[in-house]
Design a protein around this nucleic acid. Structure first.
Lengths: 138, 138
DNA sequence: CCTGATTTTGACAATCATTCTCAACAAGTT
DNA sequence: AACTTGTTGAGAATGATTGTCAAAATCAGG
């Protein structure tokens, strides 16, 4: 049996541009990535950016986190990485990946203790990065 | 100088009803609390529910978390409690408060290590509660 | 209890992020 | 080139949330 139901996407100009933009590895909303692309001369449409980011999030090629304001932020993740978390700058979006191995176990122990199954967890660390602090932002 | 810029809110029928409803201590969206109230015979308006929940979140009387879908969920918190996290059921919203003392320190150590200041953190644990699992939901 | 100053309410419009629609278009195949 | 089918983009539609503003209610004070 074939479990691969989805054909690989076609490599269009738009997809290439989006993939390129993601190389900066910042956390940005779809709208912000779109502006970024247009500022660089791309003519890509907003809906296309949304679609591409969602598709990439589905395949695990980008991380998606929901900010306090309810916007979804996207960032390309390291190839092949499994589960990880981030320390993100609230001012400029720059992020570093962090590892919280202790927590993976902890989450399951807590779940078990309360009888909850299919445990998922989100850890979001935010702060103001050195550059932004120096610039007086945030 | 007087730093208390906000007079205590007036106790209106609507506010009383909302406060009462919050006693169930579930995590629900503003819209869901509104439906809940109307179902109980209240005539409170949606905007009023939003305003009340926001005000309560500002004073720390309710917790607000943003779900994966981008909705903000509200829940009354234990009086006087400071900072805490939740294990929430993805199916019915029932939640238990959990304590992660180790993490408070950890968060600051990570922040320092990367030069990030004004560190804030969010930990969200979700799962399927025993009742929902038994009922085949989720 | 009556009155007035000030808050609060609620119906509805406005905003914001995101998703949907669908005809025009481009990728990859033969 | 011709075809099949996935992709695009403009704009409409949706859904959550916030803003607007006149009418109603609260909490003084007399």
């Amino acid at each position: 049996m074939n479990t691969d139901t989805s054909p690989r996407p076609r490599m269009t100009r738009q997809r290439r541009e989006i993939l390129d933009a993601l190389d900066t590895r910042d956390f940005r909303s779809a709208q912000s990535w779109h502006e970024h692309l247009r500022a660089d001369g791309s003519t890509v449409g907003l809906a296309t950016v949304y679609r591409a980011l969602q598709a990439l999030a589905d395949t695990g090629d980008v991380d998606a986190v929901v900010s306090e304001s309810g916007e979804t932020l996207y960032r390309r993740c390291e190839a092949g990485e499994e589960h990880h978390h981030h320390l993100r700058c609230r001012s400029c979006g720059k992020a570093v990946e962090i590892d919280v191995p202790e927590f993976e176990d902890f989450a399951h122990r807590i779940g078990d203790a309360h009888g909850y199954g299919d445990i998922r967890h989100t850890i979001e660390l935010t702060g103001i990065c050195p550059e932004c602090a120096a610039a007086g932002r945030g």
